[in-house]
Design a protein around this nucleic acid. Sequence first.
DNA 1: AATCCGTGGCA
DNA 2: TTGCCAAGGAT
Length: 376
Amino acid sequence: MVNPSGAGLKPDPADLLCWYDRHRRRLPWRALPGETPDPYRVWLSEIMLQQTTVAAVAPYFARFLERFPGVEALAEAPSEAVMGAWAGLGYYSRARNLHACAKAVVERHGGRFPASEEALRALPGIGDYTAAAVAAIAFQIPAAPVDGNIERVMSRVFTVEEALPKAKPVIKGHVAGLVPPDRPGDFAQALMDLGATICTPKRPACALCPWMTPCRARAEGLQETFPRKAPKREGELRRGAAFVALRNDGAVLLRTREPKGLLGGMAEVPTSAWEADYDVGKAVLDAPLDARWQRLPGHVRHVFTHFPLELTVYFARVPAATPPPEGMRWTPRAGLADEPLPNAMRKVLSHALDVPAAAPARKGRKAAPPDEAEPA
DNA sequence: AATCCGTGGCA
DNA sequence: TTGCCAAGGAT
């Protein structure tokens, strides 16, 4: 330890790197010590990890690497293949930007990721954090990425009283002042590992922390009160109707959502608008085609980042010869797995199509719960 | 600057 | 159960 007894002294990057060399996480996208990182893998993992946990990313990362081994393969792939491979991961604008970024790297940079923070920042889907992270990890540039982990670690070590997100520049300044020129990538990853495994949001394991001594929040016993955060308001419940049309040959009626906005570019069954004051009683007026629509019991609920959604599901069987309405398509049930269906829509399809059988009717509601008595 | 973007896991 | 949170970016 370089800093054995110095409570109140500056945190020493060397102490953190020493800890990292012993305790770093082994992750699929990380180069082993001594290996040269692959910028494509670093970039792909950073995009996937935006607001997404390591556990959720791992299988997607492996699948992407298999289907799109390099940036050229990804750039040449059809959009549907990319969106389909991303389906379920969430934040679908990331997938659109990922594809656009791959094309830009091929066209503007000859298929090689640019080795500067500024040039990286100019690519689609790469913001301040990702530009700094890729620069530091893939190219050993002394950049200072600041993610949620690093915000937490630094706000505690320096007792940053300013609330997020206003505190971001202050925190960035603290990090930049500590970046060791010889190991910027390891330093960034060390901070993230520390935040993920030791300096956790709740009950941080301060006794195991290489920066326990210089940590000012710890010294005051206030570590769990950082980072300060501005209060956020919650979204209002929206309702709507979803229409599952099943053709007698087994095909289901689908359409593709607008390229931008909520669930942009993803597939869905036809639905009404989703509104706070939606009148389910008049839902059949919003049906995509004429049929004997049957209202299914219960609802499908889904919570987005900024509002909860409650969909009433309608079901109808139609003749095999029924043509698709304008802008829609019939997809065979076997083909549903290949459609870029977000989870909300998978819940709807499951609600309407899954055979209830003589299921054990789980308390925890796995399928179609008649979750409301619906008093007029 | 504030809002809009998914999803799953975990106390 | 509910709320919080996770390697943020675009507008």
